[in-house]
């Protein structure tokens, strides 16, 4: 049996399939704290887009407000980026994709940006299944305003100053699944390999790919008593499967014992291979996905991996029957009706 590992460039190979080096995917220098989980996520984003050979000119990156939302400036420097208002990135991303459906959109948000001020827009993004990658860099606190609790903080988790959180956490993955999201994953900024495979799968998916990545805040939420500290998450990380990603452009044949690995085909022809770890987990089964989230949370564990996927759900743009050319670049001949059209409208009003 051969389980493919994450495809890694052969030694000495410096460029990807479109001839670009990894450096072409880098952005500005991070101004986040040293050791911040968000920087590890930015690194994996850079790697994933490099590995997938995506043209940065075809990518738009968006974010809301907060530490997480600063990070799009630190990756994909060749792409257009937009820093929206707090919690409202989903609508801007939706409008941008309506304008140019040929783009690949990646949005980065935080647990406050998504779970608190932006929960309304998050809800409707998931419901619409707008084609984009939506990453929540989840550290259970507000970093940029110096460590207040966020809605994803677990009940009983403490702040540095001893304040105990007495409200239940919003589980963004459970919420996304309920809302009809077509790709829901959870990962940990300390698990490079899992994160990379999930990001590559997210790039290959058509629809909203929601990744809730636990990303400890080393400054305000990394202490004893916090359930979002690096050590807590490391000790309680419960991967659902061993995930491997084979992109459409790599000709890799895979042999495995029936029943041990689940292969899921994605929109662009890529495949995700999921080697089963926890019993008989099937991420295409919605009720199983819900159950695993609730059960692991009840045990104080963090279930990570590809939690739910519905690869063929039509995305929002597909429902709108749009012309093939991006709406933003349609010529006036296509967007200004002819004189006869106006005449007909006027005649009907006489």
């Amino acid at each position: 049996m051969t389980i493919p590992g994450t495809p890694t460039p052969a030694p000495g190979k410096k460029v990807n399939r479109i001839g670009l080096a990894l450096t072409a995917y880098r952005g500005g220098k991070s101004t986040l704290c040293a050791g911040c989980g968000h920087n590890a996520i930015s690194e994996r984003i850079i790697e994933a887009f490099f590995e997938m050979g995506v043209d940065g000119q075809q990518v738009i990156k968006l974010s809301g407000i907060g530490c997480s939302s600063k990070s799009p400036a630190y990756f994909l420097g060749q792409s257009h980026g937009l820093n929206a208002v707090h919690g409202r990135m989903p609508s801007v991303a939706t409008g941008a994709m309506l304008a140019n459906k040929g783009m690949l959109a990646i949005g980065v948000s935080g647990d406050g940006d998504t779970g608190a001020i932006g929960i309304g827009q998050f809800v409707h993004l998931m419901r619409r299944n707008v084609p984009m990658i939506y990453i929540v860099e989840n550290n259970g606190c507000y970093g940029l305003t110096k460590g207040q609790l966020s809605p994803t903080a677990d009940i009983g988790s403490t702040l540095k100053n001893g304040v105990v959180n007495d409200l239940p956490a919003i589980d963004l993955c459970a919420l996304a699944i309920d809302l009809g999201a077509s790709f829901v994953a959870r990962s940990f900024s300390g698990d490079k390999r899992q994160m990379l495979s999930l990001l590559e799968a997210a790039i290959a998916h058509r629809g909203t790919a929601m990744l809730d990545i636990i990303s400890p805040c080393v400054t305000f939420n990394d202490h004893e008593g916090s359930t979002k500290s690096y050590s807590y998450v490391k000790d309680h990380d419960e991967p659902l499967e061993e995930i491997s990603f084979v992109p459409f452009f790599e000709d890799i044949s895979v042999d495995y014992e029936p029943g041990t690995v689940q292969a899921v085909s994605l929109h662009d022809g890529s495949t995700v291979f999921l080697k089963k770890l926890a019993g008989d987990y099937d991420p295409t089964n919605k009720s199983m996905a819900r159950r695993v989230i609730y059960e692991s949370a009840a045990r104080g564990e963090v279930a990570t991996g590809l939690i739910y996927i519905e690869p063929n759900r039509p995305d929002f743009l597909a429902l709108l029957n749009l012309v093939d050319q991006p709406l933003a670049s349609l010529p006036a001949e296509k967007t200004r009706p002819p004189r006869e059209a106006l005449d007909a409208i006027m005649d009907a009003l006489r």
Binding site: S91, V92, T94, A96, A99, N100, L327, S329
Partner: peptide
């Protein structure tokens, strides 16, 4: 937000 996102992309 949608209108601005579309305007940003040139629509």
């Amino acid at each position: 937000g949608m209108a601005l996102g579309a305007g940003w992309l040139g629509a």
